[in-house]
């Protein structure tokens, strides 16, 4: 395996692990507000790493110019915070309970 192929493999493994961590956060953390942190950050970065891996593979191993994946990364990095914002607004609107150790809960009631 060449250096580039190792780079592709490394980025793919890192990306998949980030994606897995996002899902672990979703299952493990105690309340909705903390769960939201996993998917918005870890999953987005994981997908960024996978996009880089795919770009490295197609441009350097296969030798064909392919930048289309960049659009996926761009789109996700723009939309991920918006999705998170809408979800947490909906959660605040429905007055979901937060974990008991959360401080400053009264601020959320405004």
């Amino acid at each position: 395996m060449s250096m580039i192929e190792w780079l592709v493999a490394l980025l793919a493994v890192a990306g998949s692990l980030f994606v897995l961590m996002g899902s672990v956060a979703l299952v493990k953390l105690p309340d909705f507000y903390t769960r939201l942190h996993g998917p918005t950050k870890a999953t987005t970065l994981g997908l960024g790493a996978l996009v880089l891996s795919s770009m490295a593979y197609f441009n350097f191993v296969k030798g064909e110019l392919s930048l289309q994946q960049l659009l996926i990364a761009l789109f996700l990095f723009i939309t991920a915070p918006i999705t998170a914002h809408m979800l947490i607004k909906a959660a605040l609107h429905l007055k979901l309970d937060s974990a008991e150790q959360t401080s400053g809960q009264q601020k959320a009631d405004l």
């Binding site: 592709v8 793919a12 990306g15 998949s16 994606v19 996002g22 899902s23 979703l26 299952v27 909705f32 769960r35 939201l36 998917p39 999953t43 987005t44 994981g46 997908l47 996978l50 996009v51 891996s53 795919s54 593979y57 197609f58 994946q69 996926i72 996700l76 999705t83 979800l87 909906a90 959660a91 429905l94 979901l96």
Partner: peptide, 29 residues
Amino acid sequence: IRGPSVVDRLLALDTMYINSIALLLLYGI
């Protein structure tokens, strides 16, 4: 499936979308 609220399920489904994109990218490579 676990929920417990609608927003939790929505968040899980949204993450599923993104993970399926990840799977498609890997399959493309």
